[in-house]
Computed example of a mutant assay.
Amino acid sequence: MSKGQKILFLGVYGMEVVECGGALAKNVLSGGESYATIMLCRESSQPQVRNAAQTLGVNVSFLNFEYGTVDLSKESKVKLIKVIREVKPDIIITQDPEHSFHDLDPDRRPAMTLLLESIALASRDFALDETPGLNPHPIPTIYYMTPHHPNTVIDISDVWDKKEAAMDMLESQMEFSGMHFDDMLDSKAAEILSPGFSQLNNFHEKGRAIHKVLDKAVHVYHGLATHGHFALAEAYRREGNFHLDELIK
């Protein structure tokens, strides 16, 4: 990723801003601009996601789609196209198509098709009347987040603290995760992952404790653990080939 780009993250759920927060935060530190637009985020959770984005230096907005109703209507496409034409990104980060089909979170599958169709149509003479004053924007370079088969890793060691601080802001997500982990993990396994888990006071603390373990495990795996060059790395899959003037190391 070149320095100082204009990056737009198109997300389905709010926590995804933090999941790819390392790349977004590094771009800001390099003099670039990072934006995030979230399709589905409960109104009660939006202040938390906004605080997380602010910690990362990301300008975030919400499209307020309704759960279980994501479709390929023109109205839905125009919502995303308007954002793309306003931001005019060099790079778009969004969910991985392959991952979206295996993840049973609701709306991920129609959202993936909607996202890709909107990116494509934003570059054409589609819905110009519905986006007055906004010209078509060429399809940016696309990176898929948390892919099953990454071909790119980003060193996030220098922004790790920012990313963890941003995750701290997602209180309702941590509480939801805490309920899930408390139910699915037996007490011995939970203590192996996070010593003292059983003594934590509430679901929020339990969720955050396990997320800290997962966060580090995932990023070390994509970094140091797989003979990588970085201690902590975010993984992505770039759409299409890398086009280089010459080979790089």
Rank of each mutant, 00 (worst) to 15 (best):
I91F: 10
D71A: 10
H149R: 12
A111M: 09
V17D: 02
L128S: 10
D125K: 13
Y143A: 00
P140A: 05
K249A: 12
L224H: 15
G228S: 12
E246T: 13
H227M: 13
L214H: 08
I154W: 03
M174Q: 14
G32A: 09
I119A: 01
L40F: 06
L200G: 08
M169K: 13
G31W: 02
G4T: 07
H243F: 13
A122P: 12
A190K: 08
S118K: 05
H243A: 14
F101S: 12
K26I: 11
L115D: 05
P150Y: 06
S100C: 14
V28F: 02
A233D: 08
E175L: 02
R108S: 05
D158C: 07
C41G: 05
R208E: 03
K26M: 11
A166C: 03
S118F: 04
E98L: 12
M167V: 06
V12H: 01
V159T: 07
I92H: 05
D215V: 01
L56E: 07
M112S: 14
L40N: 03
T226W: 10
C41Y: 00
V78M: 04
E205P: 01
E191K: 11
V18S: 00
I38C: 08
F9C: 03
V218I: 15
E98H: 09
G32N: 11
H204G: 09
L185G: 02
G178H: 01
V153P: 07
H222Q: 13
I248F: 10
M179L: 10
I210E: 05
D161S: 11
H102T: 15
D96C: 15
S157K: 14
L244F: 14
I192D: 13
G14S: 10
M174K: 10
R50G: 01
V83M: 09
L80W: 06
D182Y: 02
T226Q: 15
P89C: 04
G68N: 08
V153H: 02
L116D: 09
H148M: 13
M184T: 12
A217Q: 12
L8S: 07
E43N: 11
S45K: 09
A53Y: 11
V83G: 04
E239L: 15
P132Q: 10
L134Q: 08
A120V: 14
N59C: 03
F9N: 02
G196H: 03
A122K: 02
S73K: 08
L40G: 03
H99V: 11
D155S: 10
G4F: 06
M169L: 03
L244H: 15
A111T: 13
D168R: 09
V58K: 03
H137N: 07
G178I: 00
R238F: 02
K216Q: 15
L185F: 13
L170T: 00
A209G: 09
P138D: 01
I84A: 00
E86Q: 14
H219Q: 09
Y35W: 14
V49R: 04
P138Q: 05
E33A: 13
F62N: 05
C20Q: 05
F203K: 07
D168M: 04
T55F: 03
K188H: 14
S73Q: 08
K163E: 07
G133F: 05
F230N: 08
A52D: 05
V159Y: 05
E171P: 01
L72I: 13
L193C: 02
A235I: 07
D186V: 09
K6V: 15
Q173H: 10
H211W: 14
E117W: 07
S157P: 06
F9K: 07
F197C: 07
L128M: 11
D186N: 15
I81T: 03
T69E: 14
